[in-house]
Amino acid sequence: MKLLLAEDEKELSRAVETILTHTGYEVDVAFDGEEALALFYERAYDVIISDIMMPKLDGIELLENIRRQGDATPVLLLTAKAEIDDRVVGLEAGADDYLPKPFAMKELLARVQALARRVQGYSQPELKCGNVILQMDELRLTARNDVQLSLQEAALMRLLLLSSERPIKGRSIVEKLWADETEEDKVELYIAYLRDKLDSIGADIVIAEERDEDGTAFRLVKEE
Rank of each mutant, 00 (worst) to 15 (best):
L177K: 06
I66P: 03
K56S: 10
K106P: 05
R87S: 08
L151T: 03
G130D: 06
L12F: 07
E213L: 11
V112M: 00
Y122G: 12
I19W: 09
I133A: 07
D199S: 13
A114W: 10
K106M: 13
M136S: 11
D214N: 13
A80K: 08
A95E: 00
R144G: 05
E165A: 11
D97I: 11
T79F: 07
G90A: 05
D137K: 14
D86I: 14
I84G: 00
Y41D: 13
K176L: 15
D196I: 01
A93K: 04
E11V: 14
E92M: 02
I191R: 09
E92F: 00
V29D: 10
C129A: 15
A104T: 09
L4E: 03
L62I: 10
Q69V: 04
D212G: 05
M53G: 04
S123H: 09
M1Y: 08
R166M: 11
R43Y: 13
E224N: 12
E83C: 13
Q124W: 02
L177W: 09
T18H: 15
R171D: 04
L194Y: 03
L108A: 02
A143M: 02
S172T: 14
V119M: 13
M157V: 00
D212C: 06
E183T: 13
L127H: 10
V112A: 01
T73C: 15
G70M: 07
E210T: 02
D146G: 13
L161R: 00
R211M: 11
E223M: 11
E165D: 13
L159P: 00
G170K: 09
D46C: 07
D71M: 06
G130W: 12
L159D: 08
R219E: 00
K186F: 06
